[in-house]
Each structure stands twice: as C-alpha cells, then as structure tokens.
Design a protein around this nucleic acid. Sequence first.
DNA 1: ACCTGAACACCGTTCAAGT
DNA 2: ACCTGAACACCGTTCAAGT
Lengths: 246, 246
Amino acid sequence: MIASVNPDPSEPRPGSAEWWRNRYRAGVPAGRPRANGLSLDRICEATMAIIENEGLDAATMRRIAEYLGTGPASLYRHVSGRDELLVLLTDRLMDFDGRSIEEDLDWRSGCELIARGFRGLLLGRPALAELCSRGQMLGPNSLRGREQVLRWLLREGFSASLAARTYLLLTRYVIGSLHTNDRSSKQNPDERAAVIRLFEEIDPVEFPTVVALADELGGQRPEDEFEFGLAVLLDGIAASREREAP
Amino acid sequence: MIASVNPDPSEPRPGSAEWWRNRYRAGVPAGRPRANGLSLDRICEATMAIIENEGLDAATMRRIAEYLGTGPASLYRHVSGRDELLVLLTDRLMDFDGRSIEEDLDWRSGCELIARGFRGLLLGRPALAELCSRGQMLGPNSLRGREQVLRWLLREGFSASLAARTYLLLTRYVIGSLHTNDRSSKQNPDERAAVIRLFEEIDPVEFPTVVALADELGGQRPEDEFEFGLAVLLDGIAASREREAP
DNA sequence: ACCTGAACACCGTTCAAGT
DNA sequence: ACCTGAACACCGTTCAAGT
C-alpha cells in the first residue's frame, strides 16, 4: 500500500506511455508456459471470469489465485502487481473491429458506427468502461482500433489535426458517457423513477426549475442521452469540417 | 467487505436518488456537537486535509480517525461508512456559484462560462473530479448549481427538454474530459512527450497512421482538448437551437 | 446513551525457505 | 532457477464492553 502511495519514480507506472514503450521495445516476453501450468493467459482468463461473476472489486490477487488453485504470491511471477494485471487485461478486452467502417459510408454515418460500436464493446464486457478510464489505452489491441479509425477519418477528408482531435473527442465522449451513467445505474428504470421522485419532492421555492424539469432531468434513458450527445457532437464536427474546407 | 460486495438492498446506496430522498425527507440531522468534539464537519475537514496532502486513497477511515486523535470506530457515530462520508464530502465541495451568468451574456458565452467555471471548480479541489464521477450529484449544493444553470438556460430561450439535455451533456462533458485526462496526467508535459515518443517508435507498418499523427495525438494540452470539444459541443447545440426555433 | 478497544474478515506485496 | 507459505503492513466494519 505504501508502494502505491509513494510509487518508485524510477519504475514507470503500468499503463503509462513510458511503461508501454518499454514493453514494446522489449518485445512480448512470450509468456512461455511454466511447470505449474500458470501463465499470463490463464491469469487473465481467471480475472475475467471473476469480474463477470462477482464484479471488479472482487477480482483481488487473493481471489484470482484461489480461483487458479494457488497462492497469491504465485501471480507475481507473471505480473508485477494488480495494477499491471488490470492494464494488460484491459487491452486484451479492447478488440475493437473497425473493418465494418471500411465500407461506403459518409463521414457522419461512419462516425456514428464507430461511436456506437465502441460503446457496444464497452457495454458488452463488465467493468470495461471503468477499466478504460484509468489510462490512455496505449496497448497493441487499442492501437489497432485507433489506427483503423484514424486511417478512415483521413480518407474521408479530415485533416491530420482534425482527425486526431475528432478521434480523441469521440472516444472520450463514449467513455465519459458510460462512466457517468453506468455507475449510477441509470440503466435501471427504477433508479430513473427514483430520481424523478426526488426532484418532485425537493423544496419548490429553492429549486423551482429543477422541480419543473423533473421528468426531463431524471427520465432520460442512457441510450437517448448518448444519442443526443452524439448528434450534437457530429453537428459540431460538421461545422469544423466546413470551416476547414468550405 | 462482504457488505460492499453484497450490499443490503433494503438500505439504499449512499449517493443514490433514494438515499438522498430519505435524507431530504428526514431533514438534516443538524449534527449537534458531541461530547468528544467530533462532528461531521470536523470529519469532513480532516478528510479534505488528508486528500489534499496525501491523496484520495490515503483518506482511509483509520487515517482520518488518527488525524482526529481517535479510533476508526468513532467515525461510525457520524457516518454510516466510507462511501457515505465521501458522498457527503463531495457535495460540500460542489459550491458552484452561477451568479456570474446572470449577467447579459448570449447563450453561447454563458455556456462557455458555465463549462469553464465548473471545470475550474473541479480542477481546484484535488480528487473532486474523481469523486464526481461516482454519482449523480444530487446533494443540496449540487442542486443549487443545477437550479441556477437551468433557470438561465430557460431564460435564454431553451425549451425545457433542450435545457435539460444541454445541462446534462455539458456537465457530463466537463467531468468526462477531466477524468480521462487527469488520471493519465496529460497535464504533465513530460507525459505528453512520452506519448509522442511511443507513437513515433511503434511499428510503422502496422500503425502507419498513428505514427504519422504522433504529434497531433499525443501533444494536445488538456486545456486545448477541452476547448476544442467545448466549441464542437456548442456548435452542435447551436444547430439544435436553430432546429427548435428556426 | 454514547463512545471506542479489540476483534473479524479481508487486502496487496515481499521474501526467505523450500524444491 | 523457479515457486510459494508465511509474514508484514495495511484495509472497512462490527460489537461487546466500558463510561
């Protein structure tokens, strides 16, 4: 614990650019199988299984080891610690396939496909959205998706600068919207109803507008909120494109 | 720990709409001072001091108690647990003052002022951005800011529906952009340089576009990224406004 | 009635001792 | 050389015993 509060600055933080750079330079350690059958692959599988069944917080080093029939110390032969394990696992889950956008789509439909596809990917894997927002997604799998999207944006006539900023904005938007809406489980209609009830009951003298807009504020389904924001973003990007090449 | 993995569903989760609703109905317990001088106020002060000096993770119940010269069990007289404490603390920190937008601003400048002001508030308090994204901000302080912003949006001619969705989108954007950019400490020029270096060194055959756009992808200052996204959002909202009242 | 020491059931990580 | 039991230094929370 002290190590995580006062991390050794000589060793780059797992998931940081410097850390990934060292990893790419060193080449993949190739994780040859060990005598006891433990490997990074098996550890990741176990971690995913636990997250799926019991949630991210339950995926402790001890629980993962128990799942694999060994002690927690054994995991440290394959991974420097829990942070590194989660970084590696996250990249493994980020297998965004951008091939479908290679088709004949206009830039706007393509961006919608990308944003919805990425959202779908994050929604499809438990805890992935949360894992995502803990870093910059610089692993090989993530870079594969980045490459595909950027290449397509350039082909659609985006300048280098606008393509990069559009990519960063869209991905940030997808992650951010999931993060804020999932945590509070707005997905659950009961929770949305509870928000409306709350807004209807607070002091109407101090909060007249919030009370009046109770339904509009509390009743939004996350998908609708997402789609509204996406449309707004793409309207704005359309304006940027036009400004760039009138 | 088992309690947090398997939370009692009869007791609403701290920070949820149902939990706040109960709290508003019950009225503030007014936290009368106790014999030993401990109070919710003092606990929050201590927690803030620790977060400021040692970070959010260091603000454990034990450390807070130690700071106050007592044992961890004493805190549970004032707060149901760590989650509740952080929820209450977060709302106390959310003292957004929207009075400056009461002035004679056009809707766009006002939205910029709101977004930048909220961003400034979150940047000014350590860990507040992270605390924010763990809930829906339904506390009294947060609702005060919500009320002010919504009232102003309506006065600027936004419909109820568009005002609510604009409010939600803007706040989500501010929080999301901080969350993704702070964690990875892109604020630090060294880290940005490391990202560029990484992109320049990866395989140019597999990632030609990422390599080519290394500077544009890695060199963005968070403020510039934020301002670009904000401009895009407001361009898009302009389009929504126009569609609403041509 | 209010408070809290001590205990319970957990953590991540290290390292010396085993093979 | 590789592996891991046992230990270290922490957690959040509870509850019975104290005042």
